[in-house]
Design a protein around this nucleic acid. Structure first.
Lengths: 347, 347
DNA sequence: ACCGGTAAAGTAAACGGTTACGTTTGATAC
DNA sequence: GTATCAAACGTAACCGTTTACTTTACCGGT
């Protein structure tokens, strides 16, 4: 296909000037006279000139492009965060190159490499639930490319990060459940080898401990952050005939998994079993039973992460790892309003 | 900042060979001997070489990159579609550069230009609800860059597109309402100047006509595709004391706006007023009142659009505008189950 | 001893810009 | 009338690859 892209030289030839003149004129360089500038611009428009960012980027050795790597898109938290990041980027004249790891750490590593190849100026990353090999991130560090983690973070690599206050939020949620009179509180914990899994579990334990309640190890289940994982854990407890009064879900999808499990087993929320979750959706308020959840302000987290990265881009140089923690608040719904003696579970 | 990026020449110097040899070796060109290849690859690894895609793309005059332009991200349909597009792109070794127009047509035009500047090989676009000026798209056409519209499409520009079967789906939904016994059926129509707005409204009218029901013009309201728009329309009818039995919402957010309006005015769905919608969320099945909606298979639409675009990329040349239409199915929930005499509205 | 062929490597130009540094011209200063 | 300077434009090199075209060296065949 003959894509006859118009270049600077085409404009230059037409006007019998050098391409440098054209380049400068288009960028309003002071070297060039008003008359020439106007002429060049008019001709550029007339010919349908579109500047070639690739050439520009190669020459400038920077791209005003940020790489964004997330594990998922179709997920309230990430969809909202991504949108906020795009907003901020647009407002600051940065482009975004996003990639989705699909919770697969080898995809993640591959995407990081690709982004380095594309010479992004900086990276914004939320890691997968299985990320263990840090080679890709060490490469980023060695190349001196700024990176900020958000939500799903890795510490100790020298990169700053922004998260919700996982421990405090989890503690808040579980303390609320306790205050409402629940004592048998389970926790579907995601993966405890991840930062968010670990810290949310810490919050859960802290609240239990502060209330003097014992933690029943059978009720604390690892398994993942997705709906399927929540469902699986629910079924496991159900089949063992060992469901607690309320389950504290590590994520919104896991909470949905609990809803799914309840529906599958014919139990009603909140009549027979209850649920409270870290993360939810504002749509929830229109529906019954509305989930009670710890609000994870995706857009606030995302904007902080972007600002942090932009700051690093503008002030290069080595720096300390900085951790920004956004406090979480409770969003009250219909679930977790107080225990009742279930006709089904405790006849 | 001294980003000492390793280049082909660095490897070449180290090995006392030319950079062409290195380039060829890394790409397993037959020109180069096994021993040299291995040596080059080892050295590349040792030095932490990361190929520069920018330079490669400039040289190759293509980028294996697709531009994706959507009006929104935090929206079930788009989040799902985007994820499917990223999936397909990854599987086909394409990169995606996404931009979000935020329903703003001048942002949209700007993003299109940026993507052309970035020399994307092709474009995947879902237009804003206000797109009227086609200049940007004509530029795309003039440059011969392949483009496929999905969901929110523009016809007549020579670009192919993939949509749900809007008319059929809308007709299905409204016919279902009629079958359940509703006669007073309103329609919050989004914007009738858009393709989806127009066609969904056509489907609504068709179903009404087939049932011999009159269309009350007061009950057919334009306004937009967002939650706020649905809410506004609802309040307008409510304040006029002129609510129908059921509202057919043009989109899921508009349906949520109806939920919001009902909640605001103390009306209960489905007791006092009902709603059915084009587009919904699978999460809905866990909640009450679960929305009855026309399922818009976002991932199917997205994958078709990507395949279409990939095909055009592999077989360049002029072609006819092709329209792929994906049939829609009804997803039954609790709303729109049948009319009842509302204690509130008809005392 | 000469020819042709091939494997393996190198040279130069191109991709479309930007930047550092020259050159020309005219006006101003002295 | 010459030195000085700034405005306006040009030249050449470079960014890091790829590609088209050579070159070199060695080998077998006659």
């Amino acid at each position: 296909m003959k894509r006859n892209q118009v270049t600077l030289s085409d404009i230059a030839d037409r006007l019998k000037v050098s391409k440098v003149t054209v380049s400068k004129a288009l960028r309003d360089h002071t070297d060039i006279g008003q008359a020439t500038k106007q002429l060049v611009k008019d001709t550029a428009r007339e010919l349908g000139y579109t500047p070639n960012f690739i050439a520009r980027n190669l020459s400038a050795r920077k791209t005003t492009t940020i790489g964004l790597l997330v594990p998922k898109i179709a997920h309230h938290f990430f969809a909202t965060a991504i949108e906020a990041i795009y907003d901020t980027a647009f407002a600051n004249n940065y482009e975004i190159i996003m990639a989705v790891s699909q919770e697969n750490s080898s995809h993640e590593a591959k995407h990081i490499e690709t982004m380095l190849s594309m010479r992004v100026d900086g990276l914004l990353v939320s890691v997968t639930e299985e990320t263990e090999d840090m080679a890709a991130f060490k490469l980023v560090r060695d190349k001196g490319v700024p990176l900020v983690f958000f939500d799903r973070v890795v510490n100790g690599l020298g990169f700053s990060c922004v998260t919700a206050d996982d421990k405090q939020g989890a503690c808040l949620a579980v303390a609320h459940a306790i205050e409402r009179g629940y004592t048998d509180i389970g926790h579907f914990a995601g993966f405890s080898h991840t930062q968010i899994g670990y810290r949310r579990c810490q919050g859960y334990r802290l609240a239990m401990q502060q209330a003097g309640l014992p933690v029943n190890p059978d009720w604390v289940l690892d398994g993942g952050f997705g709906e399927k994982d929540g469902f699986r854990s629910f079924m496991q407890l159900h089949d063992a005939g060992n469901l607690p009064q309320v389950i504290f879900a590590v994520s919104y999808p896991v909470a949905l998994g609990v809803y799914a499990g309840a529906r599958e087993t014919g139990l009603a929320i909140p009549r027979d079993i209850d649920v409270i979750s870290f993360g939810g959706s504002s749509e929830n308020r229109f529906f019954k039973p509305a989930l009670t959840y710890v609000d994870q302000p995706a857009d606030v987290i995302a904007r902080h992460a972007m600002e942090m990265l932009l700051h690093e881009l503008q002030h290069p140089g080595p720096r300390e790892e900085e951790h920004i923690v956004i406090p979480s608040t409770l969003c009250l719904g219909d679930t977790c309003a107080g225990p009742r003696v279930s006709k089904v579970l405790k006849p």
